Simulated assay, not measured.
Amino acid sequence: MKSKSQLGRFLRTRRAQLQPSDVGLPEFDERRRVPGLRRDELARLAGVSESYYTRLEQGLSRGASTEVLDALARALRLDETEHRHLHDLADVGRRGGNDRTRKPPAPEGITETTRQLIDAFGDTPVIVLGRRSDVLAWNRTGHALFAGHLDPKSPQDPAQRPNTARLVFRDAHTRELYEDWPKKARDAVGRLRLAVGRYPDDPLLAALIGELVMHSPEFTDLWSAHRVRAWDTAAYRMRHPLVGPMDVTQQAMPVPNEQGQRLVAVTAMAGSASQTALTLLAQITTPDGHTRPATDNPSTLSECL
Rank of each mutant, 00 (worst) to 15 (best):
S61L: 15
L129Y: 01
Q259L: 15
G93H: 08
T101I: 11
L11C: 05
R262K: 09
D202C: 07
R132S: 02
Y53E: 10
G260R: 03
R115C: 02
L129M: 07
A144C: 04
L11S: 03
A225W: 00
Q283K: 11
S133I: 02
S21V: 13
T54I: 15
V189P: 01
T113P: 00
L117G: 03
Q58Y: 13
A252G: 09
G47F: 07
R12G: 02
L242E: 06
S51H: 14
L263M: 14
T114V: 12
A185G: 02
L242M: 06
D288G: 14
G96F: 07
A159V: 09
E50N: 13
E112S: 11
D79M: 02
E30A: 12
R198T: 01
V264M: 06
R94H: 09
M238C: 06
A73T: 04
D202G: 04
D40R: 12
D70T: 12
K183Q: 14
I110L: 08
L263R: 00
F219P: 00
K103L: 14
L192R: 02
G47S: 11
S216C: 10
R31Q: 13
R193M: 05
A144G: 02
G24F: 08
R94W: 10
E57D: 12
R170Y: 04
T111G: 09
K183Y: 07
T286I: 05
D123S: 05
T291F: 07
E82G: 06
D99N: 14
D171V: 05
S65C: 13
N98I: 11
K184L: 03
W223C: 00
Q275T: 04
S51E: 14
D288N: 15
L56M: 15
A234C: 11
G63A: 15
V128I: 12
S21E: 13
G96P: 05
L89V: 10
L89Q: 04
P26D: 07
T111K: 12
H290F: 12
A268N: 05
R62K: 14
S65G: 14
P254R: 08
K2L: 13
A207F: 09
D29G: 14
R115I: 02
E258C: 13
P254A: 10
